[in-house]
Design a protein around this nucleic acid. Structure first.
Lengths: 338, 338
DNA sequence: GCAGGTTCCGGGAACGTTCCCGCAATCGTT
DNA sequence: AACGATTGCGGGAACGTTCCCGGAACCTGC
């Protein structure tokens, strides 16, 4: 499609390109009448500045890229809303790319953002150890970057995270104090750093109450989807093991587990209590409603946006680490009141 | 961050910028040795072409923008996956912007895409009659555009849609044949065109079986969220009206209605059968599982991508209208077997 | 009435590419 | 051996902006 340019306006008014430019950016060195003429002509010709040209000129794009590991749950979209709300207010556009839990696609997305000359990148990782070299290279090259939720391990980068360990500990403790002893942990993928932390919280809570944990039977490693949760539930029941509670890595997994357990005849929460980390709106639409640790997703987005703004303004500023406070929501699935 | 440019390579090898450019785009007019030298230097200096410059040069960005009305359900994300799968294969990048059911934000997103010089825009509307002038203007200016699912009314544009009317008709007919007579329709927002079509399907199915419909009590207009569905359920029960089935505009609404009805003591599906249009993965994680009309979302994305590719290649090509075949999934919430 | 300062505007370079044009060197043909 | 054709390369314009620089016109103050 044909764009109206500053040149067209200049030609139309038979004045110079420079003057038009000045009029449009509100430079003082233009007569008010000239400015008005230009503004009118711009409106009349339906002129839209071409940001590509100014990007080229200035070397930045007024855009921040967000790379999310998945978009099927409301998790990412809520965080992105938070990001947009603060960045839009600063006149910065937001583009989103989805890695679909695939580190190679994440890498592709990263290159896409780089080539797009975004001013900064906000990332939630697929795997805490893949693509390290790329992130290191980008960081070294001075690209502002912020990580949230699914963060890398041992990299000095700005990040906003939940207190995975403590909140897992407390939630498992609540299950124990509610009378559950045979608590199984659905760990989720091992190459997500948070999964290690949440496991640790589970282990330590169990240890505090001197409940022995056989890691090979009571901790189940799996993926991130409903189906994988359901499958874990089947394996669990199939193994004949005795259990009275589940603590899952995410609500997606927990929902998969819970629904399949019910189909297999388990009464929730009477026979099996269900609880999970990473609660989203999904936790409230299932039956029974899910007890979860609910991170303030919108706020996480806001914080991430603030951190990236800092980095953009001053790339040399120290890498801050923000921890947000996740709420423990006791709902029907655990059979425990607050 | 500092980018390595073609000039840096030229300087480094003390050859001309033109030669470097030719070597990089595989022009024949370069000696193989020279080409290799350039390629090596490019690798060594970690050169990345700056697409902003080529965009400016060629007037396009190799990017397609997708504007979605919401991102909290898996609806949009699944369609976007389909879009990405075909566009990525053509070397076209995809950026996503979320309108959050707000026509003003949609308008903003539209301008963002325009200013980004995307090669085409794929849109699902917030309102079927808002922002018409903008879409018309863009179309007149030659911007390739494709609409899906939530399409505009009476605009000759490429679009991919579901057969709202017929599938609604069939689903309601199934409810009737299953023995339900007092079927309430939760219509959803009136300014979504599909909502008119689905209402018509409902009305005609009821008419076919000579069931009188009092539109003012049996058709409820509301929004799109879980909460609005729940609220509708409350109003319904509060009104004391007798009903034995619900046909809702989307699964989101249906889920809101169903869960609240259960909380209010209604047995699903015995006392009230629930069915809805626009089924996503959410329909299968609730209890009982939801009977829905399930559009092939991924395929819708693929079709939309193909249509936009056509339009990009030849902006003058006729505006095709693709109808995809939505499946009716009978699940527990309706108490009716297929 | 003239030096100096404003005000307003046009010319042109620059951002990183691509590509057309032209020139030199080499090649192939007779 | 001499000529046109081909190959390989550099110069420079162009994409749409911004911005520096310089210059013309005007005003100010003595």
């Amino acid at each position: 499609m044909k764009h109206v340019t500053i040149k067209d306006i200049a030609r139309h008014l038979s004045i110079s390109v420079s003057t038009v430019s000045r009029a449009l950016v509100n430079d003082k060195n233009v007569r008010k009448e000239t400015k008005e003429k230009v503004l009118n002509a711009a409106r009349e010709l339906n002129y839209k500045p071409n940001p590509v040209a100014t990007n080229l000129k200035y070397g930045h794009s007024n855009t921040v890229g967000v790379i999310v590991p998945e978009m099927v749950t409301p998790f990412a979209s809520t965080v992105v809303s938070g990001i947009q709300s603060v960045l839009y207010a600063h006149g910065i556009k937001v583009i989103v790319a989805d890695s679909r839990e695939n580190p190679d696609m994440e890498r592709e997305n990263l290159r896409l953002m780089e080539q797009f000359m975004v001013d900064g990148i906000i990332v939630s990782l697929c795997s805490y150890r893949k693509n390290r070299e790329d992130y290191l290279r980008l960081q070294k090259a001075g690209m502002p970057m912020v990580f949230y939720d699914r963060i890398p391990y041992g990299l000095d980068v700005p990040q906003v995270l939940v207190d995975d360990y403590r909140k897992s500990f407390f939630l498992v403790e609540k299950l124990i104090l509610g009378g559950r002893k045979k608590i199984v942990h659905i760990q989720g993928p091992e190459d997500i750093y948070n999964s290690k932390e949440r496991l640790k919280g589970y282990m330590d809570a169990m240890a505090k109450y001197k409940i022995p944990v056989n890691e090979s039977t009571m901790v189940i490693r799996t993926g991130m989807t409903f189906d994988e949760g359901a499958e874990a539930a089947e394996r669990l029941v199939g193994s004949g093991m005795d259990f009275d509670a589940i603590f899952a890595f995410t609500d997606t997994l927990a929902i998969g587990v819970m629904n399949r357990l019910r189909e297999l005849g388990k009464r929730i929460p009477d026979e099996v209590a269900i609880a999970s980390f990473s609660g989203t709106e999904l936790s409230t639409i299932v039956y029974p409603k899910l007890t979860t640790v609910e991170p303030p997703l919108f706020q996480m987005g806001e914080k991430a946006a603030e951190l990236i703004l800092e980095k953009i303004k001053n790339p040399a500023c120290p890498n801050r680490k923000e921890t947000v406070n996740a709420e423990i929501r006791m709902r029907e699935s655990s059979g425990i009141r607050d």
